[in-house]
Amino acid sequence: MILLDVASWALILAGSAFIIVGALGILRFPDVYTRMHAASVIDTLGAGFLFAGLMLQAGFTQVTLKLLFILLLFFFTGPVITHALAQAALHAGLKPEIDEDRRDRLRDGSLPDAGRQP
């Protein structure tokens, strides 16, 4: 079982490291849109690795199942919040600081079968 312990500790440490990196990114990046990328590192890699380590500690129990539910919650609600935030910021007229604007390569809804139902 020493091997399992080592693996879980490594995962917990990796998760902690990614959490701190994500927080640093939120502090360091220049505008809201770039900061969102850093926040999603916390949501996915940080929480993912940390909880995977905790799951190894808990073994096959109800606790593991609950950790899995929390992770699933993160994975399904994270994009919703990020998307809502980005859309709200764009709607408010906040211009993203970008090096290159490649949006012109396609126009909105230029394809004929856009959003077709099956």
Binding site: P79, H83, G109, A114
Partner: peptide, 19 residues
Amino acid sequence: TLTPGTITTGVKGNILTVH
């Protein structure tokens, strides 16, 4: 959106705007 480094900021039909 879930993969860090890319965010969908808008959806119109089947054209996605990505940051």
